[in-house]
């Protein structure tokens, strides 16, 4: 069941300027949330930002009662989060949306995870789930430059497989887009049972062209401007193939690429 939780900021970890993690005490949400789901976060400012912002739950610890988010500073909401003193309280509406599916894969299966920049956010929890289910995963993390890839520190020891880095400028890892790094592996014969991806729309569009021909079943964690996060405003739609518009907050955010009109 969705609920509006009060949460207290207990920890902030900075990967590089403008790229950080925040951890909140929020026991009920920590128990309820599944990998891939998100929460609508309200920072305590009345006028601006006025609406809540959606953040994927990066990880949750039911025992400790904590939930963590990985954040990239963009505008008003994220700047407020960046400056917020420890022990501040926020409101978290969640859990929202659907979750990644893992349970149906047989033990020993190999999956791929593709993340562009802050698109890495939903994957710590998924990677732990994958390891626990006895699967292996290659983690492809792309960014514009070395700074954007600083978030990789959050994944140390979490990846049951290979970590592949790619940067547009070649400063770290393979040079070029992360989708190209994936395409090279697929071209060389690597096979995956499923692919999970999160990143900016241009990355998804490029990725759809790779996974389609490879017939690689995929789950994309999509992003759209959200007014409410629970299906009430119809502001967050994405053009679909089976119907004109998909309501991304309640039918997603995790969608298979064939359902999206690119």
């Amino acid at each position: 069941m969705k609920a509006d939780h009060r949460a207290t900021l207990t920890r902030r970890q900075i990967f590089s300027p403008g790229l950080f993690s925040v951890t909140f005490d929020c026991p009920d949400l920590a128990r309820a949330v599944l990998p891939g789901q998100f929460a609508m976060l309200e920072v305590p400012e009345r006028a601006q930002p006025y609406l809540r912002r959606a953040y994927s739950v990066a990880d949750a610890d039911a025992g400790a009662g904590t939930v963590e988010f990985l954040i990239k500073t963009i505008g008003r909401g994220t700047r407020a989060l960046e400056r917020m003193p420890e022990r501040s309280t926020v409101r978290l509406l969640g859990p929202m949306g659907n979750a990644f599916t893992v349970a149906d894969l047989p033990r020993g299966a190999r999956v791929a995870i593709v993340a562009g920049g802050i698109g890495a956010a939903p994957f710590p929890a998924l990677l732990r789930g994958i390891a626990k289910a006895g699967l292996s995963a290659d983690f492809f993390l792309g960014g514009r430059n070395a700074k954007e890839l600083s978030i990789r520190a959050r994944f140390d020891g979490l990846v049951p497989g290979e970590t592949v880095l790619a940067s547009d400028d070649g400063a770290l890892g393979e040079k070029g887009f992360v989708t190209e790094a994936l395409a090279r592996r697929l071209g060389a014969g690597t096979r995956y049972a499923r692919l999970y991806a999160c990143g900016p729309m241009p990355m998804f569009a490029a990725l759809a062209k790779v996974v389609g021909p490879a017939r690689l079943p995929s789950e994309f964690s999509t992003e759209a401007e959200m007014g409410c996060g629970f299906g009430a405003c119809l502001g967050c739609v994405i053009p679909g193939t089976e119907k004109p518009f998909i309501v991304s907050c309640s039918e997603g955010p995790i969608l298979s690429p064939e359902k999206i009109q690119w």
Partner: peptide, 22 residues
């Protein structure tokens, strides 16, 4: 079906919408 996205944006102490009556 309503209007094509983007349909909403935040503004000072409020928002603009053009959902298009989906």
């Amino acid at each position: 079906a309503g209007n094509a996205p983007p349909r909403i944006c935040e503004t000072p102490a409020g928002m603009l919408n053009a959902i298009g009556l989906q």
